[in-house]
Lab assay of single mutants.
Amino acid sequence: TGEEYIAVGDFTAQQVGDLTFKKGEILLVIEKKPDGWWIAKDAKGNEGLVPRTYLEPYS
């Protein structure tokens, strides 16, 4: 389980392990790392690192 967040901007993977997403996408945050990069999963089940500055809590 995780917390749902909504993307407030588009993000394109910079390196292997990053997750590309579009503004408005709902992501499930699995782990919040202290460096500001969180592990998240998208609706298709893809998992990767995302920058927390692009996310806001979804309710």
Rank of each mutant, 00 (worst) to 15 (best):
K23R: 13
K22Y: 10
G45L: 05
L49C: 08
D35G: 10
T20E: 08
L19A: 01
D35T: 10
G9M: 15
I39Q: 07
G9Q: 14
K41I: 10
G48N: 01
G36E: 06
K22V: 09
D42N: 15
K32F: 08
D42A: 03
L27K: 00
A13L: 04
V29A: 02
I6H: 03
D18A: 15
Y5V: 03
W38D: 01
K32R: 08
I6C: 05
E4W: 15
L28W: 14
Y54A: 11
P51Y: 15
K22E: 06
E25P: 00
P34R: 06
Y58I: 09
Y5C: 03
T1K: 12
V8L: 15
G2F: 14
T20I: 03
E31A: 11
G36Y: 05
W37K: 08
G24I: 01
G17P: 03
D35H: 09
S59P: 07
W37T: 08
Y5H: 05
L28R: 10
L28A: 05
K41C: 07
A13M: 07
S59C: 13
I39Y: 12
I6V: 10
L49W: 11
V8H: 06
D18V: 15
Y5M: 05
V50Y: 01
P51F: 14
Y58L: 10
G48I: 02
V8C: 08
E25S: 11
E3Y: 10
I30E: 02
A13H: 04
F11H: 07
Y54H: 14
A40H: 00
A7E: 00
I30R: 06
G2T: 10
L55P: 00
E3R: 09
E31K: 11
E47L: 15
L55V: 07
F11P: 01
L28Q: 08
T12Y: 15
Q14W: 11
T12K: 09
L55K: 01
L49P: 05
K22S: 10
I6F: 06
L55G: 00
Y58H: 10
Y5I: 01
R52G: 09
F21M: 05
R52A: 15
E47H: 11
G48E: 00
I30Y: 10
A43N: 10
E25H: 09
N46Y: 08
L19M: 07
L28N: 07
V50M: 02
I39A: 06
E25T: 09
V16R: 13
D10I: 02
V50L: 03
L28F: 13
K22P: 02
Q14Y: 10
Y5A: 02
G2C: 09
Q15E: 10
E4K: 15
L19P: 01
Q14A: 12
Q15Y: 10
T1C: 09
T20D: 07
G24Y: 06
G45V: 01
T1W: 08
V16M: 12
K44N: 11
K33A: 09
K23A: 09
D42Q: 03
N46S: 08
A40F: 02
A40L: 03
G2N: 09
E56C: 13
K22D: 03
D10P: 06
L28T: 11
V8K: 09
Y58D: 04
E25G: 04
K44F: 13
P34G: 13
V29W: 01
K41V: 12
K32A: 05
K23G: 04
P57E: 08
K44I: 10
Y54K: 12
D18C: 12
T20G: 11
W38V: 03
Y58V: 09
I26C: 06
Q15G: 13
K44R: 14
Y54W: 09
E56I: 15
P34A: 15
L27N: 00
Y58N: 07
Y58S: 07
A7Q: 01
G9F: 15
I26W: 06
S59D: 12
P51S: 09
Y58K: 10
G48M: 02
T1Y: 14
L55M: 06
K41Q: 09
G24S: 04
L49V: 13
L49R: 14
T1L: 12
E25W: 13
G17C: 06
W38I: 02
V8N: 09
E47G: 06
I39V: 11
A43R: 11
G36L: 07
W37N: 05
Q15W: 09
N46E: 11
K22I: 06
G17M: 06
E4N: 15
P51K: 08
K44G: 10
G48Q: 01
V8S: 07
D18L: 15
G48Y: 02
L55W: 01
G9Y: 15
A7W: 01
K22M: 08
P51D: 11
D42E: 02
K41E: 04
D10F: 04
R52Q: 14
I26E: 02
E56K: 15
P57L: 12
I39T: 08
N46V: 09
W38G: 01
K32M: 08
F11Y: 14
L49H: 09
W37A: 05
K22C: 06
L55C: 02
L19I: 06
I26A: 03
V29N: 00
K23D: 03
V16I: 12
V16G: 10
E47R: 09
K41L: 11
E31I: 13
K41T: 06
P51A: 07
V16S: 14
L27E: 00
S59T: 15
V50F: 01
G2M: 13
I6R: 11
T1N: 14
P51N: 13
A43S: 14
Q14F: 10
D10G: 07
I6N: 02
I26L: 09
E4R: 14
K32N: 03
V8I: 15
E56W: 13
D10Y: 05
K23N: 05
Y58M: 11
E4F: 15
A13N: 04
P34I: 11
F11D: 01
E25R: 02
K22A: 08
I39M: 14
F21T: 02
E47T: 14
A40S: 03
G9A: 15
D10H: 07
V29P: 01
A43K: 12
P51T: 04
A40Y: 02
K33S: 09
L19C: 02
F11E: 01
Y54R: 08
Y58R: 09
G36N: 07
K23W: 05
I26F: 05
V8A: 07
G36P: 04
Y58E: 04
G24P: 01
T53A: 14
A7I: 02
D35W: 05
D42P: 02
